[in-house]
């Protein structure tokens, strides 16, 4: 999952995927705004088939945060 997330972000931000790791922070490292993150999440939701609840958005800062959340939601499905 983490590789797919990185690919989506790299495509959206037009950066080399090698520049993004699990620790990469959406806001501080990639200078994404909240709309960028929402848009990225929309893509990842379609890929993973799970919908991320709004109250979890504030917990998402890094690529790892997002990957872990998706995994949790997939397990609970």
């Amino acid at each position: 999952m983490i590789g797919q997330i990185i690919e989506i972000i790299a495509q959206q931000k037009e950066v080399d995927p090698s520049e993004i790791t699990g620790e990469t922070d959406f806001y501080n490292d990639l200078e994404m705004n909240s709309l960028d993150v929402v848009s990225c999440v929309a893509d990842i939701e379609e890929l993973s088939g799970v919908s991320i609840p709004d109250d979890k958005f504030t917990d998402i800062h890094t690529v790892n945060d997002l990957a872990e959340l998706i995994e949790q939601l997939q397990k609970g499905k």
Binding site: V38, A42, E45
Partner: peptide, 12 residues
């Protein structure tokens, strides 16, 4: 109020 769900659907 902020509602990311709605924005996701608009983008989609």
């Amino acid at each position: 109020v902020p509602y990311p769900y709605s924005v996701k659907q608009m983008i989609r």
